[in-house]
């Protein structure tokens, strides 16, 4: 398999907010492989959302370089980058611009000056992809949070982006809404060959990602596969996060004298298999 160059590369990115002493992001360097799902985790205020905003030119970098989807993040390129990198923000209410679902999906297309006949088909297709076709004429007040987020995804999809960033897009949703948004994203990623960046503190979501990046107080503290990251255990708690369920169980069992479990991170299925093995072989 030919190595594709990373779709995002960030080199010593620093962002400072005017009113704060400590930089929001402190010399962050990382790369994101194309077509991967990367979870960015960290406690509230750790700077993880600022990272997304910097890539999209919504905050200006005070140092460092960034390349997104083959383009250097500069003032000249930023409008092109915004068509290739779509962002779903945290609050479903505050990104719904259109008066109805269809109008909202069309908003980005209108900005990109897509002719109306093409817009009609693109809006319909995008709505179909997130399963919101029946809601095309609904007003936002009559939608649940999860539905609004799916509309936001459709609005991005209509522009055929390469990358979709979820900026805590599920944190204000109920479990059903959260599940529906994540499922939609997983289906889309497979179908559209997208790269997904997901800023989250839902560790179970992160556990299902290809890569996990941990940000704490504006610094990149860890980067790796979920098993590598979650093997850290208690260090995560110190960073204001929690430990995945299976890790917690493993450490409680170890405290009770059960030491036969592998040290690596196990997902629930692997954990169940291991426990069965312990039980049946002893």
């Amino acid at each position: 398999m030919a190595e594709e160059p990373p779709i995002i590369s960030i080199d010593h990115l620093t962002v400072r907010y005017a009113e704060q002493e400590q930089p929001a992001l402190d010399s962050i360097s990382l790369t994101i492989p194309a077509h991967s799902w990367t979870a960015i985790i960290g406690h509230n205020g750790s700077g993880k959302s600022t990272l997304i905003k910097a890539m999209d030119g919504l905050v200006t970098a005070d140092g460092g370089q960034m390349t997104v989807a083959g383009l250097a993040v500069t003032e000249q390129n930023i409008w092109q980058i915004r068509q290739r990198l779509g962002v779903v923000f945290q609050n479903p209410e505050n990104q719904f611009v259109g008066a109805t679902v269809a109008d909202d999906v069309a908003f980005g297309l209108e900005n990109a000056r897509v002719p109306r006949p093409e817009m009609l088909t693109r809006v319909d297709n995008a709505l179909a992809q997130v399963g919101m076709t029946d809601f095309a004429d609904r007003e936002p007040a009559h939608l649940s949070g999860g539905q609004k987020q799916r509309v936001a995804i459709a609005g991005i999809l209509a522009l055929a982006p390469a990358i979709i960033a979820l900026d805590e897009a599920t944190s204000m949703l109920d479990p059903q809404g959260r599940a529906s948004v994540l499922q939609t994203m997983r289906d889309l990623k497979a179908k559209e060959n997208l790269t997904i960046l997901s800023v989250t503190h839902d560790l179970e979501e992160a556990a299902a990602a290809d890569h996990v990046i941990v940000i704490d107080n504006g610094r990149l503290v860890a980067s790796g596969t979920p098993p590598e990251i979650f093997a850290e255990g208690p260090a995560l708690i110190d960073m204001g996060l929690s430990v995945p369920f299976t890790e917690q169980l493993k450490s409680d069992l170890a405290a009770g004298g059960i030491t036969g479990l592998p040290a690596d991170y196990l997902n629930e299925e692997e954990m169940a298999d291991q426990l069965w093995k312990l039980y049946s072989t002893m």
Binding site: R82, Q83, V97, E110
Partner: peptide, 15 residues
């Protein structure tokens, strides 16, 4: 932020 991220600019024509 959301409108800017979706490419809205007051200085350009829209359809």
């Amino acid at each position: 932020d959301a409108m800017t991220a979706r490419g809205y600019r007051t200085d350009a024509p829209r359809t």
